[in-house]
Amino acid sequence: MMTNLFSTFEPMSSVLNLPTNWLSTFIGIVLIPSMFWLIPTRYSIVWTKINNTLHNEFKTLLGNNSVNNGSTFIFISVFSLIVFNNFMGLFPYIFTSSSHMVFTLSLALPLWLSFMIYGWTNHTQHMLAHLVPQGTPPVLMPFMVCIETISNMIRPGTLAVRLAANMIAGHLLLTLMGNTGPQLTYSIMTILITAQVALLVLESAVAMIQSYVFAVLSTLYSSEVN
């Protein structure tokens, strides 16, 4: 019960003898965006430039259709997730999730299904026109429909297999080269270590390239349904 009118302004409530009334001061600081009171690091600047570059490129691939506004952030998120898992797999004793079909197919199949459901629901005539390329002779139209349908159906599989196979190949080669180390002499061991370092640099490039390829192909598949 308040003893007077001004007692409501006293820091009476506490947890473990710490006044909780003062927490509002610190909560206000947390709510302020970090860009106003933190200097951006080189890492954040580089990552922001990469995201801006990808956003501009994906926006060009998707076109100026108003339906696609904001779609670039989906593909940037997919790229970020894949490139993070690819690079994490280069460290020893870390499970490379992007080298397994469970991970890659879980990304590719929902994206492809969403494109197909949206396209066939809202742009049925446009999707049917894609099955027969322009200038196809009437005799070849049934065969072209079959070929285009099959090529469309295997798209999620090719996306998933491409990413998983490229990640498995490099890691497998690194493992096979590393297992031959105990049987080698010191002179050959130097050559082996140099080769493994060069292969690790190549794998770093592959990790980024495959993430980019996955995101770009997903963007192209999305642009075809509009």
Rank of each mutant, 00 (worst) to 15 (best):
L5Q: 04
E10H: 01
P11F: 11
M12K: 02
S14V: 02
F26G: 00
I27N: 12
I27W: 12
L31V: 11
L31T: 06
I32M: 14
I32H: 10
P33M: 05
P33E: 08
S34A: 14
S34F: 15
W37Y: 05
L38P: 00
I39V: 14
I39Q: 10
P40L: 07
R42K: 13
R42I: 08
V46P: 00
T48D: 01
I50E: 04
N51S: 03
N51L: 03
N51P: 04
N52D: 00
T53Q: 01
N56P: 00
E57D: 03
K59Y: 08
L61G: 01
L61F: 05
L62E: 01
L62A: 09
G63K: 15
N64P: 06
N64Y: 08
N65C: 11
V67W: 09
F73R: 10
I76Q: 13
S77H: 05
S77Y: 11
F79C: 09
S80G: 08
F84M: 13
F84V: 12
N86V: 13
N86L: 07
M88Q: 11
M88A: 11
Y93W: 12
I94V: 15
T96Y: 02
H100M: 11
H100V: 08
M101G: 11
M101W: 12
M101V: 13
V102L: 13
F103T: 06
T104H: 06
A108S: 01
A108K: 03
L109G: 06
S114H: 07
T121Y: 15
T121P: 04
T121A: 15
L128Y: 09
H130T: 13
V132W: 04
P133W: 12
P137A: 03
P138F: 12
P138Q: 05
P138G: 04
V139K: 13
V139G: 07
L140I: 03
M141F: 03
P142W: 07
F143M: 08
F143H: 08
V145R: 05
C146K: 09
I147P: 07
I147S: 07
I150R: 02
I150T: 05
I150V: 12
I154N: 00
R155K: 10
P156C: 05
T158E: 13
L159A: 04
R162W: 09
R162T: 10
N166P: 00
N166E: 10
M167S: 05
L173R: 02
N179M: 10
P182W: 09
T185V: 15
I188V: 14
I193Y: 08
A195K: 00
V197W: 13
V197Q: 14
L200D: 01
V201I: 13
L202C: 00
L202P: 01
E203V: 09
S204Q: 11
A205K: 07
A205S: 06
V206W: 02
V206C: 07
M208L: 15
M208T: 10
Y212V: 05
Y212W: 13
Y212D: 00
V213D: 01
V213C: 04
A215E: 04
V216N: 03
S218A: 07
S218V: 03
T219M: 12
L220W: 11
S222V: 02
V225N: 00
